[in-house]
Amino acid sequence: MRRALDMLYRAAAGLAALCLVAILVMVAVQIAARLLDFALVKLGLPPTRFIVPSLAEISGFLLGAATFLALADTLAKNVHIRVDLLTTRLPDGVRRVVDGIVALLGAGVSGFATYAMAALALKSLSYNDLSYGMVAVPLALPQAVLALGLLILTVALVDEGVLAFTGNDRITGGGASV
Rank of each mutant, 00 (worst) to 15 (best):
A12Q: 00
A13H: 01
L15D: 03
L20E: 06
V21Q: 09
A22W: 04
I23S: 00
I23G: 06
L24G: 14
V25E: 07
M26W: 02
V27Q: 14
V27H: 09
A28N: 10
Q30G: 01
I31L: 14
I31Y: 07
I31K: 02
I31S: 09
A32K: 04
R34V: 03
R34C: 04
L35R: 10
L36D: 15
L36Q: 14
D37M: 06
F38Q: 15
F38C: 08
L40P: 03
V41F: 05
K42Y: 11
K42T: 15
L43S: 12
G44A: 09
G44Y: 08
P46H: 07
P47L: 02
P47N: 09
P47H: 09
T48E: 13
F50Q: 12
F50R: 12
I51P: 01
P53K: 07
S54Q: 03
S54L: 05
S54M: 02
S54K: 05
L55W: 07
A56H: 13
A56D: 13
I58D: 08
S59T: 06
S59H: 08
L62M: 08
L63D: 09
L63R: 12
A66Y: 06
T67Q: 11
L69D: 03
L69V: 08
A70F: 13
D73G: 04
T74V: 14
T74H: 04
T74S: 13
L75V: 02
L75H: 03
L75R: 03
N78H: 12
N78P: 06
V79T: 13
R82E: 06
V83Q: 07
D84N: 14
D84C: 04
D84L: 03
D84I: 06
L86I: 14
L86M: 11
T88C: 11
R89P: 10
P91M: 11
P91F: 00
P91D: 15
G93N: 12
R95I: 02
R95K: 12
R96H: 13
V98N: 01
V98K: 04
V102G: 07
V102R: 03
A103E: 01
L104I: 06
L104S: 07
G106E: 06
G106Q: 01
G106W: 01
A107D: 05
V109A: 13
V109H: 01
V109L: 15
F112D: 03
A113V: 10
A113H: 00
A118D: 00
A119G: 02
L120F: 13
L120C: 04
L120E: 12
A121T: 06
S124D: 14
S124Y: 15
L130C: 05
L130F: 11
S131T: 09
Y132F: 13
G133C: 10
G133K: 08
V135C: 03
